[in-house]
Amino acid sequence: MADDKDIQKTEEEYRPTEYDYRHTEDARSDMPFIVLGVMVFVALMLGATVANRGLGKFRSKPALELPRDAKRCIRDTAFMRSNHMKLLNDWRDAVVRGEVRKEKIPRRDATGKVVKDAAGKTVYQTIERSLTKTCLRCHDNPKAFCDRCHVYAGVTRPGGSLKCFHCHIMPNPRPRAGR
């Protein structure tokens, strides 16, 4: 034993260890773990990507099925795109906990502009705060609207459905001309 060590030491004199890190004892014993760790990391990241949408099949914008006849939403598109969940949560709390079912919103025309009366005052309309009675009346096919976008955005796994519809009942989509 003692002899071996001495031999190694003499060898090391010829090999400057500060450059050749593989020959330090610690690094040598940790190497397999580091490689394994990197491999696990890469596998997990790749796996997640593949499971999500498949390599190489990065889809462009999802084809969302928009309401058939309604042209106006209760809020403008930009607001809905970023805040629909906040709105739904607020509605939920207002109806279930605050017992306030109705809401007044400015009436909008077909282009989404707020309608003003002759005196220049905003015209209001009353709507019911209800996912099924208000939102889904126009968006009658949530599978092709909510789900599709959520899957695209990676919020819902492909084939999965939104938690809302575990309880709230999906409407039967009305027949559509261009489908």
Partner: peptide, 17 residues
Amino acid sequence: PRKNLKAVRPGFPTRTI
């Protein structure tokens, strides 16, 4: 609960597990 419902009445939400 959905698994045990024969017919779902659309006007009222079911519950979740």
